[in-house]
């Protein structure tokens, strides 16, 4: 038996696949009408145009990019899109997956990129960056990438709504406002707040975010300022969707806040950043 030729790409792919791609709450939203419709549209659109979609894989900063090429088959599943690469014998050699819950913070917007082909002639491509994977189509297929982006955005919205549970929070905020005596923060919460502020001061925003999330997990209304700070920190890390949601939650909890104007301005800023 001949040993299989292992490409560098293959190794890279399996590494990417191993790196924490996991199924999440997609099941809870699978019954959502918009979600279902978006999945259906993608399932119709992508497999048919599989030969027009090229794949690129890059690291987080996209400083190193590997061209994977055109996949042999595209499958749109309930929680992901699967790109299957096959050899001449029609045997699957590698698979790349884009999980929807991994692109919740992504700015889903196709970008026109000008480059050149092997002969040096200029070419225009349309790139859609989805996490570490980018979908690439030629300029003639720009409509395709725009449609894919639209459907993915729709999926992203539904998943984010489910993630932040805004409707539920509105009730929580109302109940909080009706309370005569507001809940006070616990010692554990105070510990996490102090930690978060310390991380912020040294610009370690990710750790600060984690600490504030722990504060909210203990009691979601004891320290409303946690929402405000979390929003600022997320905005700082370019996670604008989450930043907007946390700021909105803060405004629901403290509608008469002294920084209400600033909070609203921030939301507008982040919305612009998200859509441009």
């Amino acid at each position: 038996m001949k040993p299989k030729k292992i490409h560098l790409n293959l190794i890279l792919f399996f590494l990417i696949l191993l790196l924490g791609f996991h199924n999440t709450s997609a099941q809870s939203v699978s019954n959502n009408v918009h979600y279902k419709k978006a999945i259906h549209n993608l399932a119709t659109l992508m497999p048919l145009n599989a030969t027009a979609i090229k794949l690129l894989v890059g690291n987080q900063t996209y400083s190193h990019v590997t061209v994977l090429g055109i996949s042999n088959e595209i499958k749109v599943l309930e929680n992901s899109i699967e790109f299957i690469f096959k050899d001449a014998k029609n045997i699957t050699t590698q698979t790349a997956k884009i999980y929807f819950n991994e692109i919740l913070e992504e700015k889903i917007k196709p970008k026109q990129v000008t480059g050149s082909n092997d002969y040096g002639s200029p070419i225009i491509e349309n790139h859609l960056k989805l996490g570490t994977i980018s979908l690439v189509v030629t300029n003639e297929h720009s409509f395709l990438i725009n449609n894919i982006a639209r459907e993915l955005k729709s999926i992203q919205t539904v998943l984010n709504e489910d993630r932040f549970k805004m409707d539920e929070f509105k009730e929580t905020a109302l109940a909080y406002q009706l309370l005569k005596e507001k809940p006070s923060i616990t010692e554990t919460q105070r510990k996490y707040i102090v930690q978060a502020n310390a991380f912020t001061s040294i610009m370690d925003y990710e750790e600060a975010i984690n600490s504030y999330i722990k504060v909210l997990e203990i009691n979601s209304t004891a320290y409303p300022d946690a929402y405000f700070n979390l929003a600022l920190l997320l905005g700082q890390n370019n996670r604008f969707y989450a930043a907007i949601n946390f700021m909105e939650k803060y405004l629901l909890l403290v509608p008469n806040s002294a920084v209400i104007d600033k909070a609203k301005e921030k939301i507008v800023d982040w919305e612009i950043m998200l859509n441009n």
Binding site: S184, I185, N229, L233, Q236
Partner: peptide, 23 residues
């Protein structure tokens, strides 16, 4: 730029001392 962005954020950032409910 990063530092300036940080200080801009810190102008709005709320610390524990601002918390009136703290006992």
């Amino acid at each position: 730029l990063i530092t300036s962005k940080h200080f801009k954020m810190m102008n709005l950032y709320k610390t524990l001392s601002d918390e009136k409910q703290m006992k």
